[in-house]
Simulated scan of single mutants.
Amino acid sequence: MAVDDELRIYRTGFHTCGYWKDRFARDLLLDPREPRLDAIYPLALSWGFRRSGDMVYRPDCVTCRECKAVRIPVARFEPDRAQRRCLKRNADIQVRVVAAERTDEQFDLYHRYLQARHKDGGMDDHVEIDFDRFMVSDFAQTRFIEMRLAEGAQAGRLLGVAVTDVCEEGLSAVYTFFDPAERYRSLGTFGILEQLAWARREGLPHVYLGYWIAGHPKMDYKRRFKPLETIEQGQWRDLDPEAGT
C-alpha cells in the first residue's frame, strides 16, 4: 500500500521515561483516528514503530537516542546453547495460539505478574478494562500464545501468555507475562522462541521485539537473540556484535 502525505503523525509532550527515571521522553504517534491503520500498521513496524493498545508510537527524544527498534530475521536465527536449554527446560509445556479475548485466568496471572515484577510502576493497579486497552486494538490482528503445563498433577495450569500481533511483515511481540513463581523457566525467552517457531511455520520473515537499550537490565535478553537487526536512517541492518557489551 502506498502511504501518501495525508498520514498524520503527532509528537507528544515530554513525559517521564519508562526506562530511565531521571530522563524525559517524547514520542511520535500515528493518528489513532486514521481509518487505514489496519493497512499502515504492518508498514509502521518496518519503520521502527510499536503498538500499545490503539497507539502506534516511536520514541522521539531530544537528547537521547538509546531506544533502538529491533527484530529477528527468522530464516537466519538459530538458538544458542542457553536458548536450547530453555526449550528443554520447558518441554513439559503445551503451547497453543488462542483468540485475543481476555479470560479471568489470564487476568489473574497478569495481575500477579505486575505485582511481582512491576510493583509501584504505574501498571500494577490495572483492572480488566486496562488489560483490554493495553493488549488489543481495533486494527491489529492479535493472538495470545498460551503456555500451559502439559502433564503432572497441575496439568493445564496457565504459566504464561505472549501477546502477539500477526501481519505480513512478521510477528510483533507486544507483551509477555508469566507466573512469577516460575522464574527459573525463563518464560520470556521461551515465548520469543515460540514466536520464532510460529513465524517459521507460517513463512513470516521477522519477529519484532520492540525496543532495545544497550546496558539496560530489562533489555539484555533481547540481545541474546542473534542475529538481531536494528533500523538506522530507515535501513535495517545487523546490530553491531559488540553493542551493549
Rank of each mutant, 00 (worst) to 15 (best):
F225N: 02
F134N: 06
L7N: 05
R148Q: 13
V174S: 07
T12R: 01
W236M: 00
V74N: 02
V136P: 14
A197E: 04
P79I: 09
T142M: 14
H206Y: 15
Q106W: 08
D165H: 07
E242K: 14
A214H: 10
V97N: 03
E105M: 02
G152D: 08
R183E: 15
A99I: 01
F144M: 06
E168G: 15
K119I: 12
V207F: 01
L109G: 09
G234S: 06
E6T: 15
L228W: 11
D27F: 02
A69L: 11
A116S: 10
D27I: 01
D108Y: 06
L30M: 06
D38K: 14
F144I: 02
G191D: 06
D132G: 03
R133I: 04
A100K: 04
N90P: 12
H216Y: 04
L228H: 06
W20V: 14
A155R: 12
D179K: 02
L29D: 02
R71W: 10
P241V: 04
E242H: 08
P205L: 13
R200C: 07
A25H: 05
H126I: 10
L187D: 09
K88F: 07
C17Q: 04
R148K: 08
A153M: 08
A162G: 09
V56R: 01
Q141H: 15
V97W: 13
F190V: 01
R58Y: 06
R26Q: 10
W236E: 04
R185H: 03
W20H: 11
K88G: 02
D92H: 13
D132E: 15
F190S: 05
L239T: 08
V3E: 10
L29H: 08
C17H: 05
V74A: 05
E146C: 12
I192D: 08
A91S: 13
A197F: 04
M1N: 11
G191C: 07
H111T: 01
G191Q: 02
Y57K: 03
G203N: 12
V98D: 07
L114W: 11
G156Y: 00
E6I: 06
D120E: 15
R96E: 15
H126T: 03
K88H: 14
W236P: 01
A243V: 07
D22K: 15
L37T: 08
A197K: 15
K119R: 15
L187N: 07
A75I: 12
F77T: 09
L37H: 11
A214Y: 02
I40K: 05
E232W: 09
D132M: 11
